[in-house]
Deep mutational scan, measured.
Amino acid sequence: LNLKQAKEEAIKELVDAGIAEKYIKLIANAKTVEGVWTLKDEILTFTV
């Protein structure tokens, strides 16, 4: 999975969960695949 694909998957998951745009922007700015997954997990843990 490359960075672009990771971001697309994570953003789709966050949108489906009804997460606010400000958190989705954090994913869009992530620099690594690991960073994308870590941010996604943290956002889902603390906002859902």
Rank of each mutant, 00 (worst) to 15 (best):
L1R: 09
L1Q: 11
L1W: 09
L1M: 12
N2Y: 11
L3P: 01
K4N: 09
K4L: 10
K4Q: 14
K4H: 09
K4P: 05
Q5D: 08
K7I: 10
K7V: 08
K7L: 06
K7F: 03
K7A: 04
A10Q: 01
A10V: 05
A10K: 00
I11G: 02
K12C: 05
K12L: 07
E13K: 06
E13L: 12
E13W: 07
L14G: 00
L14Q: 00
L14M: 06
D16R: 14
D16N: 13
D16G: 10
D16M: 15
G18W: 03
I19T: 05
I19F: 07
I19E: 01
A20P: 15
A20H: 11
A20R: 05
A20D: 14
E21V: 07
E21Y: 11
K22D: 09
K22G: 06
K22W: 09
Y23T: 03
Y23W: 12
Y23A: 03
I24V: 07
I24L: 11
I24R: 04
I24A: 03
K25N: 12
K25Q: 13
K25S: 12
L26K: 05
L26Y: 06
I27E: 00
I27Q: 00
A28T: 09
A28I: 14
A28D: 13
A28R: 13
N29D: 13
N29F: 12
A30Q: 09
A30S: 07
A30I: 06
K31N: 12
K31Q: 14
K31E: 14
T32W: 02
T32Q: 02
T32C: 03
V33R: 02
V33W: 04
E34K: 09
G35Y: 09
V36G: 00
W37V: 08
W37Q: 13
T38I: 14
T38E: 08
T38V: 12
L39G: 01
L39I: 11
K40V: 15
D41C: 09
D41V: 13
D41A: 13
D41M: 15
D41Q: 13
D41N: 13
D41P: 01
D41I: 14
E42W: 15
E42G: 04
I43A: 06
I43K: 00
I43W: 03
L44W: 04
T45Y: 12
T45I: 09
F46P: 06
F46C: 13
F46I: 12
F46S: 12
F46M: 15
T47H: 15
T47C: 10
V48F: 12
V48A: 15
V48M: 14
